[in-house]
Every structure is written in structure tokens, then in C-alpha cells.
Design a protein around this nucleic acid. Structure first.
Lengths: 206, 206
DNA sequence: TAGATTGTTAATCGATTAACAATC
DNA sequence: TAGATTGTTAATCGATTAACAATC
């Protein structure tokens, strides 16, 4: 099946299934039925069976699914069997959080460099090298980086995005509260914390 | 209209409309038509007009919508006309990012305290007071806090959530990669960075 | 075997988009 | 006025859920 035909929501659920399965494995589960996994991730059990079925992930009609098998299959789909190199643009608290929590060989993530307008004051504080932002494009090209994280102020996010894309990046995680414009073959994910807070303020009625 | 009848997606779009309108205002826009705003946020213009119409937000049939009016109306809906007090559980890089970037009177957000298992080493580094996690429930009650941010490790997230809710919190922003279980009247938003990265790795084909 | 769960189809549900009359 | 855009209804689209035969 072509990736372009696969709904983003399915892959998003696969990622959440996998995280839940890792927890269930830790709790001692060897096998799991769709209704149990469904409760864990708040997804209807039909949805789960259908999602698995679309990727030829099979279970046993009496005893459900094997946990290790599911983790392995989902991991393969999500690219856990290989390393993904990232660069960061903008080294503030968000960048630091990425470096400290998500630079994980086990999860296939390798953050190899950061870039900032003001590199001097930042150079020594992190476990990855930090360079001046003007060096970013050259670095992306020479290291064949395909994924970038944008955590610069909103006003410069589009410019950084353009530079990343022209240097060869085709996947971006953007923390700036701006809708980025780019070519159709560039996949962009947004993390908009302000937006999340506003949703909470509205629905929690306070 | 009852808030429970209003789709989460509409409020989510309202938040994004407002962010886009603030940018457009900065660019000098006095009025905006639905198709222009739609391009800015990647939403169909019919959708925008329908969203506005549901909340009795009106435009002019010739010249579109007044930017300041939209910002004000959307701000009122999103609660920008009052302050929302937050507490943070877990003071790492994510907590620091919240304190530095989202503690904004203009946006109605006031982070009044943080809590961590290890408060001593953190006490002096931030612009808000940081206390031991065991003090959290008492603090939430005595200050009538209604919103909490969870950025503790996954294993303790549910426990922190339970404590927040029992102390009176009804809106939670959760950065831990766990589905939290709580009463139906507690509104929870998730930020799952691992999940976002996995989506990028899948769809950007690298 | 009997019972439980998968795998898959059909039905439902709800959100998005198109269309266009109203009107500024 | 003529043209452009809103406001709103109807049509479309797609995702979710229910149902159940297959089968372990």
C-alpha cells in the first residue's frame, strides 16, 4: 500500500498502540486482546482490529495478539529498526528537552547537531554540538539529514523551514505557532502548546 | 450553546484562527476575507464561515471580517479576558519551557508554582517557586487552581493526575506518553513528542 | 465441543466541502 | 448598479462503530 494512501490517523494510532504495548509488556502481559488494548488507548476495539488487519498484522481467534509480535511489527512500520538523524533549529528549553529526553538510540532517534543565531553562549551546555544558524544548510546537505526540528520564534520559523527544505529535509517538527508553507512532499507536524492550553481553558470551564 | 455540544475541533481551529489573525494584524491587515484566513491556516473557507456563524461572529458581505473584531471575539471565547492559574508537576526542560515562553499575562496564563520530587536542586533556577511534590495537593486546594501541567516520567503520570484531580483540578496538559484515566469532567490534552516524531519518520520516508 | 475473539463487511455517524441565494 | 463575499443549506466524503460469520 502506498504511504500516501494511508491515513495519518492510523499511523498516529499505531504509535500510541506501541507505547501502550510497551507499558503492558512491562506489566507482564504476554498476549493482549483488542478490547484490552482499546481501553488502554481509548480506541474502539473494532478500530484496532481493522487497523491491524490493514497492515496484515494478525492475531489468534481465541487468545488475541502476541505482545512482542505487535511491538515488533508496529516498530517496523514506524521505522524503529533504523536510525533517524535530526537537527535542531533554535536551542532553548524545547531544544534542551529534545536533547535530554528524545535522543534515544533505542527509539531510533539521533540528534546530531543544533543551530542557533547565538551559538557562543550555548556551545558548552549541551551534549550535542551547537553551531551558528548560517551553517545549517551546509551541514544538512553534507550529512544528508532528512528531519528537522524548529523551535525558533514564530517570526523566523518560515525562513528556517525554507532553508531546511532547500537543503534536503523532508520531515519537520515545528514548535512555532505558525502554519508553515512548503512543498507537498514535505511532511510537517505541529506542536502548539498555546493552542493546547486554550483548549483546556475553554473546556475545563475555569 | 452548551460547551459539551461544541466539537473540540472547532475550538482548536478558533485558537489557530486567532494566532493567525494576530500575525495578519501585525502585517497591517485591517479586514480579512474567509479565503485569505483559510489559506493562512489551511482550512477551507466554508469551514471558517461556518465556524464563525455557529458563534454568531459576523462579517460584511462585501468586505469580509474586521480583524480586531475577530481577535476580540475569539479571545473572549477562548478565555483571554481573564487569568488562568497553572501549576506544573515535574520541573525539567519542558517545565522550564512553559515558564519561559507561556507564562504570559497578555495570553491569560499565570504559572504560579512548580512541584518536583527533588525540589532543593531546582529552587533557585526559575522565576516561579518550586516545592516538593507532596505539597502539591494542599497548594492546589488553598489556591483554587483548576489547571495542571504534567511533565513527570510516564510511570508517575497517572499518580500525579489522580492527585491533581482529587485536589480540584479539571484541566490537564500532559506531556507524559501515557493515556490518563480520570473522571469525565476532567479535560485532558496530550503533547506526545515521541508520537509526532514517529509520524514524521513514517511519512517523510527516511 | 463450547466459548471467546478475530477479521471483515455493512451501517452509521459526523465532519467537511460545495453551492448559491442573500446582501453589502 | 455590478461584483464580491457572507451565511447557510444540501451534498459529499470519510472515518468510526456495530455486527457477525469464521475459527482458534
Amino acid at each position: 500500500m502506498l504511504k500516501s494512501n494511508i491515513n495519518k490517523k492510523i499511523i498516529n494510532r499505531f504509535s500510541r498502540y506501541r507505547q501502550a504495548l510497551l507499558r503492558l509488556k512491562n506489566l507482564g502481559y504476554k498476549r493482549v486482546v483488542s478490547i484490552t488494548l482499546g481501553k488502554e488507548v481509548e480506541v474502539n476495539s473494532s478500530q484496532i482490529r481493522k487497523d491491524f488487519s490493514m497492515f496484515k498484522i494478525t492475531g489468534n481467534r481465541k487468545s488475541g495478539y502476541d505482545v512482542d509480535y505487535l511491538i515488533k511489527e508496529l516498530g517496523n512500520i514506524l521505522g524503529k529498526n533504523r536510525m533517524h538523524k535530526l537537527v535542531l533549529a533554535g536551542i532553548g528549553n524545547i531544544g534542551a528537552a529534545l536533547i535530554n529526553h528524545y535522543n534515544s538510540k533505542e527509539e531510533g532517534v539521533e540528534i546530531i547537531a543544533g543551530f542557533d543565531i547565538d551559538p557562543l553562549k550555548l556551545q558548552k551546555k549541551y551534549s550535542i554540538p551547537v553551531y551558528a544558524l548560517i551553517k545549517m544548510e551546509e551541514f544538512i546537505k553534507s550529512h544528508s539529514i532528512k528531519t528537522g526540528v524548529i523551535s525558533v520564534p514564530a517570526v523566523s520559523a518560515q525562513d528556517v523551514c525554507d532553508k531546511m527544505v532547500s537543503a534536503g529535509i523532508n520531515g519537520i517538527l515545528n514548535f512555532a505557532p505558525v502554519n508553515l508553507k512548503s512543498a507537498d512532499d514535505v511532511f510537517i507536524q505541529y506542536v502548539n502548546i498555546q493552542n493546547k492550553l486554550e483548549n483546556i481553558f475553554y473546556f475545563s470551564l475555569n
